Simulated scan of single mutants.
Amino acid sequence: MPSDNTSQLSASSNLGIALSIRSYTRKLSQHHHNHHQLVLPLHGNIELDIANDKQTIGPKCCAIIYQGELHSFAADECARFLVADLTDLPSKYLPQHQHYVSISDAFYAFIQYVEKQLAQPEFDDVSSALTPLFWSLLATQTSTHTIDKRLAPVLDTMAQQLANPLTLSDLAEQAHLSLSQFKAVFHQQLGTSPQQYLTNLRMEKAKALLSYTDLPIGLVAEQVGYQNASAFSRRFKEVYGQSPKAFSKH
């Protein structure tokens, strides 16, 4: 996925791994490439269609694009992703051709660390250490599993309708599950409740909007489903330890 991005910081190594932080646009782009690629959301979500396998994914998920696969993609400009271009993949990924998997909390924490390191002026100095560790964590993950396809339309609805009220009953119906089944499957797949996942999506988008746009806080609140700016500010502070106003000044 090159060059539809508005910003890119990268590091590469002799392991055949190139890591970069990228952003994209809402304009749908399509291509293929002669290497494998992982797309790991950091802030916000991305719509993907990999070899006619469509999903919208957000943080703690990973898209696997195999060498030569045609894929299309689109995302909000304020979203950010860690993208890994790889000559090879760990053998555990190759037989299954699974395109969308969850990632462990430890691996997600590491990619957040990579984001911070690549933003430093001296990131070339640490790239030789980042890429071997990335490969090791990728190869040794034990919690990776394919995301249940019944949840794909639900995750897409959550990602695309953050400004709208969403009920668990409606989401369960979209997954063709009872409410109790939906809650159980969702927690099993993503390690959290649907309510918490939706809150995390809203807060991640809010953080991205505050970081990369000049939108006023009231409008940011509306875009992530809060009509009351005070309620939004309280929740944001609960999650990130500081108010939206203080965060936007950083």
Rank of each mutant, 00 (worst) to 15 (best):
M158K: 02
T157P: 04
K183P: 01
E173W: 00
A175V: 11
A159F: 00
A152Y: 09
Q181G: 12
L179I: 12
A172W: 01
A152I: 01
A175F: 10
S178A: 10
D156V: 03
Q160S: 09
M158N: 04
P153T: 12
P165D: 11
P153E: 11
Q174M: 15
F182N: 04
A152P: 01
D156L: 09
S180G: 03
A175W: 08
L162D: 02
L171Y: 03
Q181R: 11
A163C: 06
L166I: 01
T167M: 11
L177R: 12
A172M: 05
T167E: 11
L168Y: 03
A159E: 02
H176W: 08
A163L: 00
A172K: 04
K183M: 08
A159Q: 06
N164R: 11
A184I: 03
V154F: 06
A163G: 01
Q160H: 10
Q181E: 14
S169C: 07
T157E: 08
S180V: 11
V154H: 05
T157C: 11
Q181D: 12
S169V: 12
P153H: 13
L162Y: 06
P153D: 13
P165V: 09
A163I: 01
L177V: 13
L155F: 05
A159I: 05
L166M: 12
D156K: 15
V154Y: 05
E173K: 14
K183T: 15
Q160T: 08
Q174Y: 08
S169D: 13
A152R: 06
L177C: 14
Q181V: 02
L168N: 06
L155I: 04
L171I: 05
H176S: 15
Q174V: 05
S180K: 10
M158H: 00
P165A: 05
F182W: 03
S178V: 05
S169H: 13
Q181A: 15
